[in-house]
Nucleic acid binder design. Structure first.
Lengths: 130, 130
DNA sequence: CATGCCGCTGATAATCATTTTCAATCCTCC
DNA sequence: GGAGGATTGAAAATGATTATCAGCGGCATG
């Protein structure tokens, strides 16, 4: 719960950078593997701690998929959703939101955010199946 | 998904019934707590196994929420989505789907399913805050 | 009704991701 | 330089879930 940007340590900045440089949402373990290259001796606990506080600070966003370890991505990408390929388990970004979301909200409820995940086959896997 | 309905044991049926009788999606632990009342000596491992096979058979659906243990609900409710109240952590069903989902699918991709979760305040919590 | 087979089950150990603990270290501000 | 608090790494602890394994139960067969 940070109102203003808490200042980050150099290690936390390095960890954040790993997520910002990643093409896709990655797991904490993934981030550790990469960050260890830049920060020798970096402990896994530090990465978990950093991810948690970066999410709290709103710098990272959690991407959770059924049956999988949570992934995280830079929040600088803005609000977006994801397409999960059941064949290759890759996660693709989707920029737009569907219309008519508000009409789903039950009476008296207040929607603050939403999350959408599409499941199916990505372009490559679909082609491979043909 | 299930070609033919695999025949369920009496314990599996009891476990399935717990989910079907539940108002909201519940966790495996929740189901165990209830099912133990009907089936004395029921092992937690049996519940985990039953849930997994029931999901495979298409009789249960997984409801996954960020930072929470997965919950399950009867698939007989049909396709639906969920509203998660960040205040009381309750999960509410939403029947409809937004329009325009297909337009989100990237070119060449094939969507087979989708999942939507809305976050916010439920009616009661919103009233309590006012 | 006896027999054999095989899947189901419960207890428990194992696993995996994540969190906590704790002592050592590092900063920051005096 | 030094006190005090935040950060860190290693390892233990935790919590959820899965695997293991021996025993039991039900069923088809003879």
């Amino acid at each position: 719960m940070s109102k203003e940007a808490a200042k980050l340590t150099s290690k936390q900045q390095a960890i954040l950078r790993v997520f910002e440089d990643a093409e896709q949402p990655i797991t904490t373990q993934d981030a550790w593997d990469v960050a260890r290259g830049e920060v020798p001796g970096l402990g896994i606990a530090t990465v978990y701690r950093a991810v948690k506080s970066l999410v709290d600070d709103g710098l990272l966003r959690t991407v959770e998929l059924v049956g999988q370890v949570p992934r995280y991505e830079s929040a600088r990408k803005g609000h977006l959703h994801h397409f999960f390929c059941r064949e290759c388990s890759s996660v693709f970004d989707i920029g737009d939101c569907p219309s008519g979301l508000k009409s789903l909200v039950p009476d008296g409820f207040q929607m603050e955010d939403h999350s959408i995940v599409l499941y199916g086959l990505c372009k490559d896997c679909r082609a491979a199946k043909a």
